[in-house]
């Protein structure tokens, strides 16, 4: 290869490597801000701020959803299988919200350690399958899932 071209090749490679390292360091320094939510274990450990709005993410604990008879109020527990945090929310929940499914709740922690949510988002997983396959895997279809079927 011509020496000038070789020199340019080295320059181009250096440019890519150095900019990657720079941006990698920035991303590493900002990793706490890039995370969309805190897992319950971090909230229990006191790593999440209590004086401003945070997001909490995890799985809705099976059997923990309690709906009010007269209002839109709902309470449920969110877990990462290490710790659990209670969430109180008043509003319409997304269709995919269900026990045992992923959820991201945005709101502020009150004095008792309950997250008073202003928004609840459903986090679904990467699995896609036809209803029959899911039924065969589960042995049955959970009532919450049956409602979502066409």
């Amino acid at each position: 290869m011509h020496p000038i071209r070789k020199q340019r090749l080295v320059l181009v490679s250096l440019m890519v490597v150095l900019s990657s390292v720079a941006i990698g360091l920035v991303a590493f320094a900002l990793r706490d801000n890039i995370n969309l939510f805190y897992p319950p274990a971090d909230v229990i450990a006191g790593k999440a701020p209590t004086d401003r709005t945070i997001r909490l993410g995890g799985m809705v604990v099976e059997g923990s959803i309690e709906r009010s008879e007269t209002e839109l109020d709902t309470t449920f527990w969110v877990t990462d299988y290490e710790a659990s945090v209670a969430v109180r929310y008043s509003g319409i929940l997304p269709d995919l919200f269900a026990e045992g499914e992923g959820v991201v709740a945005e709101g502020m922690l009150d004095g008792a350690g309950t997250l008073v949510a202003t928004q609840v988002l459903a986090k679904h997983d990467e699995n896609y399958m036809p209803p029959e396959v899911a039924a065969a895997l589960e042995g049955k279809i959970a009532p919450a899932d049956r409602a979502a079927l066409p």
Binding site: L36, F37, P39, L121, H124, D125, E126, N127, Y128, M129
Partner: peptide, 18 residues
């Protein structure tokens, strides 16, 4: 990072989650 977007369903190695 913790994100709302789910992980990849298509995998280059191993069985896809779809």
């Amino acid at each position: 990072w913790y994100s709302l977007h789910q992980p990849a369903s298509l995998k280059l190695t191993g069985e896809s989650a779809i």
